[in-house]
């Protein structure tokens, strides 16, 4: 800015002058624009001149008469003036009334105008309000529409999510199901293996049972319920390595018959070493009991 001023000093001066001029005009116009008051009405001036006696009497008469006439005239004039004044006053009064009426009218007009303006303003406002209302309504409708749309979208989304969730759940369920099935299958397999193992052991136990049973001659003199427990060591061929009395029946004949049964049943049927089950049979206990009944 300062750089600009420095370059154009004349422009600056002109600008300042123009500003000053405008300012002056603004002040003067403000002064002359004051309203002027109304001028007073013009007043009538009367001039009197004296004449001889007879003449003046006549003349007086005549003056008297003239006087009277003049007085009358004055009177008439006064009356006229009075009337005039009265008329003027009336006029003034009327004019004043008129002016007041006019002022009132003006006031009324202005009030009307103001009212109208107000009305218009109100109408405008109303219109505006209505417009605004309409706009609001529209906005509301729009909003509602949008809301509905949003809701619809949300609903759609929700449905979608729900569907996805369901799908996901179904998938998860299916997976869990599969996993469960797999686990169950594994468990079943493990159980099967354990069961197979047990049933193998069971089978060999039964085989040993049968073999010893077959080879056992129960001493007829043994008491019912008499029993002996033997500790038997086996080698993988099933051959009985040692037989010891773990618990004697208390009867030598019975104990001997039990030992004989085991020895005689040798080799006992045992699972092959490869099965991993032989270890269960490396050392076994056999209880031989004479039946109670």
């Amino acid at each position: 800015m300062i750089a600009f001023i420095r370059q154009h000093p004349v422009a600056l001066a002109v600008a300042v002058a123009i500003h000053v001029a405008f300012f002056a005009i603004l002040v003067l116009s403000f002064r002359y624009s004051r309203p002027t008051t109304a001028e007073a009405p013009p007043v009538e001036v009367v001039q009197a001149v004296a004449v001889d006696e007879a003449k003046v009497k006549r003349e007086l008469e005549r003056i008297k008469a003239a006087e009277r006439r003049r007085e009358e005239k004055l009177k008439a004039m006064a009356a006229a003036r009075k009337r005039e004044e009265k008329r003027l006053a009336e006029l003034r009064r009327k004019r004043e009334a008129e002016r007041r009426r006019q002022a009132e009218l003006e006031r009324k007009r202005r009030a009307e105008k103001k009212r109208l303006a107000e009305l218009r303003r109100k109408q405008a406002e109303e219109k505006k309000r209505l417009a605004k209302l309409e706009a609001e309504k529209k906005a509301l409708a729009e909003k509602r529409r949008r809301e509905q749309e949003r809701l619809a979208r949300l609903e759609r989304e929700r449905r979608e999510a729900e569907r996805r969730r369901r799908e996901e759940a179904a998938r998860a369920r299916a997976e869990a199901e599969l996993k469960k099935k797999l686990e169950a299958e594994q468990q079943r397999l493990a159980a099967l293996q354990a069961q197979q193992r047990r049933s193998e052991i069971d089978r060999y136990q039964q085989l040993i049972y049968a073999e010893v049973y077959r080879n056992w001659t129960v001493p007829p003199g043994a008491r019912r319920g008499m029993s002996a427990e033997l500790r038997v060591r086996l080698i993988p061929s099933g051959d009985v390595v040692t037989v010891d009395i773990a618990r004697s029946s208390g009867d030598a004949v019975f104990d001997r018959s039990a030992m004989q049964a085991v020895r005689k049943a040798s080799p006992l049927p045992v699972p092959p070493v490869e099965s991993g089950l032989f270890e269960e049979f490396r050392q076994i206990n056999l209880v031989l009991r004479k039946k109670e009944t």
């Binding site: 047990r198 052991i201 069971d202 136990q205 039964q206 040993i208 049972y209 010893v212 049973y213 056992w216 001659t217 129960v218 001493p219 007829p220 019912r224 427990e229 500790r231 049964a261 270890e279 269960e280 049979f281 050392q283 076994i284 206990n285 056999l286 209880v287 031989l288 009991r289 004479k290 039946k291 009944t293």
Partner: peptide, 29 residues
């Protein structure tokens, strides 16, 4: 056997015990 099987998992490596019960006495060879 049933009892043995039931006891199996608990007993771990307990010695197998086989009970043989016999009433009639066979002729002794």
């Amino acid at each position: 056997m049933l009892a043995a099987l039931l006891a199996w998992p608990l007993s771990g490596r307990a010695t197998l015990t086989i009970e043989i019960e016999k009433g009639e006495a066979d002729a002794i060879p």
